[in-house]
Design a protein around this nucleic acid. Structure first.
Length: 299
DNA sequence: AATGGTGGCAACCGCCGAACC
DNA sequence: TGGTTCGGCGGTTGCCACCAT
């Protein structure tokens, strides 16, 4: 018994949005705010699925969306965060103000994966490729297959979709009760302006903490009881130039963000490195451990 | 100039977990 | 407590512009 579709698709517009539709959606949200996506199209007078409206708003119409090329800094940050988080685009996007998960996902698939490959790094595992030339061939074959598939789909009515093999990647749990703060997509940090939609202030990079009892308006306050990390380019909060981690053959510059507990940080690093080492053994249990460890950064 | 191949990206699909009743 | 709804996510598709032949 399947779920009912999010909305009836009969009589709804699909495909690219028109300027008029954009305008209607934008005006409606400006007046009524985001949310209630299901009923929004009807109320706004749009012949679109609610999901489609949400997507259009989130990925294109939102006023805080940064347009234009991804900078080399952002580039680096995406690679480093991908090494740590994998394909969790929304989490990565949450640390890149003005960038959307879709944009980052596309950018990764079209630019960064190639870039890494050309540097001899497997974009999926961030491990060094044993034989870059062979991998390049492999990639080309894959790409060619994709195009053949594309063509088939384009020029024939035959269903070409193959059953995909599902790989379950547990998502980070959103915790609302405890923390008075969660790192959801919509209240990501805005470290460029020094302000944030969730009042957490200016964090550049990936910050994770298991227990934060802090002066929330001042994230750098020494009331932070535990440890967080800053991955990639960070603000200068101390001398951590030596905190340079290599994960699976790829460079991962980590700046420690530890106002008061250097010991904890070291422990955390050790634990992390240990898990990484174990994780290379491909053992499922260890991978789960590693995964949950990574998750602890996200909550 | 015509045609085919390729890359980039917006949009869609289906699944999942949280929230709600 | 269980069922349903909703919002969010990652994977995938399809369109279009550009490039090569």
């Amino acid at each position: 018994m399947g779920r009912a579709p999010c909305c009836s698709k009969v009589g709804l517009h699909r495909g690219p949005w028109t300027a008029r539709e954009d305008s209607v959606l934008t005006k409606y949200i400006q007046v009524h705010g985001e949310g209630n996506w299901r009923s929004l199209p009807k109320k706004a007078g749009l012949l679109r699925c609610g999901k489609s409206c949400r997507l259009r708003w989130m990925n294109y119409l939102r006023p805080d969306i940064k347009r234009g090329n991804i900078t080399p800094d952002e580039d680096d940050l995406i690679i480093k965060m991908h090494a740590l988080l994998g394909n969790r685009w929304s989490l990565i996007a949450g640390r890149l103000p003005g960038r959307t998960d879709n944009e980052i996902k596309n950018y990764w698939n079209t630019h960064l994966s190639k870039k890494l490959r050309s540097q001899g790094t497997d974009p999926e595992t961030h491990k060094k490729l044993s034989d870059p030339a062979a991998q390049e061939q492999k990639k080309k074959r894959k790409s060619s297959t994709k195009n053949q598939k594309k063509k088939k789909a384009k020029y024939s009515n035959v269903e070409v979709r193959t059953e995909k093999q599902k790989v379950h990647t547990p998502k980070p749990t959103r915790i609302k009760s405890l923390s008075s703060f969660s790192m959801s997509r919509t209240n990501s940090f805005d470290w460029t302006s020094g302000s944030s939609s969730n009042e957490l202030g200016d964090h550049r990079g990936l910050f994770g903490s298991t227990e934060v009892a802090a002066d929330i308006s001042n994230p750098w306050s020494t009331n932070f009881k535990e440890v967080g990390f800053l991955i990639g380019e960070g603000q200068d909060h101390g001398d951590h130039d030596d905190d340079h981690l290599v994960i699976n053959g790829s460079d991962l510059a980590c700046e420690a963000f530890v106002p008061m507990c250097e010991d904890n940080l070291e422990k955390l690093y050790e634990e992390y490195l240990q898990l990484l080492e174990i994780g290379n053994g491909n053992d499922h249990h260890d991978r789960v451990q590693l995964d949950s460890f990574a998750e602890s950064f996200l909550i």
